[in-house]
Design a protein around this nucleic acid. Structure first.
Lengths: 194, 194
DNA sequence: GATGGGCTTGACCGGCTGGTCAAGACAGTG
DNA sequence: CACTGTCTTGACCAGCCGGTCAAGCCCATC
């Protein structure tokens, strides 16, 4: 087993890895980098972790249990379900924000800096379009005021989330049905004149 | 330049790459794999593309312009902004569904099969929880009926999209403000009793 | 001061893979 | 037939990186 000092060292490695993963991505982060960042020799890595993947798994599992704890703590058992969903939602957003570096290595964009550019180069244009549409809708009184970028984020996020769920099989509905559902979903989320 | 035959060959390589990227992920797909799938020698790859990245970029740009075309075609210039947003949204979902294999290589999960397991192992449990809450809310008449998995997807997708936007700087608002916004967003999208 | 378990080092290895290259094949053209 | 530009091949290279290992350190305990 590990002594107290051992646990600290291990944590140092975990921390260093989290920072590097989030800035350079998992694949591009070399074990040597992690060790250098933690100020130890490379061989030591394998004293604490079986493989690079092993460390990754540990990192992910740790964060997941913490996130679930945060969610559970935020949800009032006595409240109606919709309220609980809302509480869980807010708690998740806050938790993820407070642990950005841990969650950002799930972002595709960080996995390979080389691809990041290509991927990003178009999304900004698209984003601007949606922002403009939102602003226009606000001007027309169809949407409540507020930062258009927020609404635009919601719209684009919905599209990609639902599409993603369809792709990986978590959702299994006819395409046109899904499209209509997402259309409704977005429109409800946007509308002010309820 | 390329002869007609050359263009075909190039397209074969692009197609093969798209399929492989979507099933194995960009990083794990070897150039040799792409060539084998297309039935040509490895050296030929570099006759048509400068680097692996070059092919990737071409693939991404092609899909992006096609997606934008589909969006533009779906949006009625005369319609009010909210309607146009909805039209663009639905068109995007449909387009992405029709080109799953092209879009799925943006999914983190495919980038490295080794990590996929670790990443997935918890999300199912979490997903089940949200589904249960949604079902409960429907039972209580707080939500319209319909597949709870759809609503759950929307909730979880919102959390991750907004958090993602905050992480990469596309959004820059105080955390608690964002959390409240996402809470509102989700609640509006869910509610039936408008 | 000896024993032993936890800890630390850094040189080293093996395999993999993106990319190169010299050598052709196969048109079409004059 | 010679010539030229497109296309095709597969052996080869170079460098990188995860993982191993033999050796040694530190320190509590006996």
């Amino acid at each position: 087993m590990h002594t107290e000092q051992g646990m600290e060292r291990k944590q140092q490695l975990l921390d260093a890895a989290a920072v590097l993963f989030s800035s350079k991505g998992y694949a591009t982060t070399r074990i040597a980098d992690i060790c250098a960042a933690a100020g130890v020799a490379k061989g030591l890595f394998y004293w604490y972790f079986p493989t690079k993947e092993g460390l990754f798994a540990e990192l992910v599992r740790t964060m997941r249990t913490q996130l679930r704890r945060a969610q559970a703590a935020a949800m009032d058992p006595g409240a109606p379900p919709l309220t609980r969903i809302r509480q869980g939602t807010e708690a998740s957003v806050i938790f993820m924000a407070e642990h950005r570096s841990y969650f950002s290595f799930l972002d595709v964009e960080r996995t390979d800096e080389a691809l990041a550019g290509v991927l990003r180069e178009g999304s900004d244009v698209y984003s601007d379009d949606v922002i403009k549409l939102v602003a226009e809708a606000q001007h027309a009184g169809q949407l409540p005021d507020g930062d258009p970028r927020m609404y635009a984020t919601g719209v684009m996020g919905s599209v990609s989330s639902f599409s993603h769920a369809l792709r990986n099989g978590r959702l299994d509905v006819p395409v046109y049905e899904l499209a209509a559902f997402v259309g409704d979903w977005v429109e409800r989320a946007l509308r002010s004149d309820n």
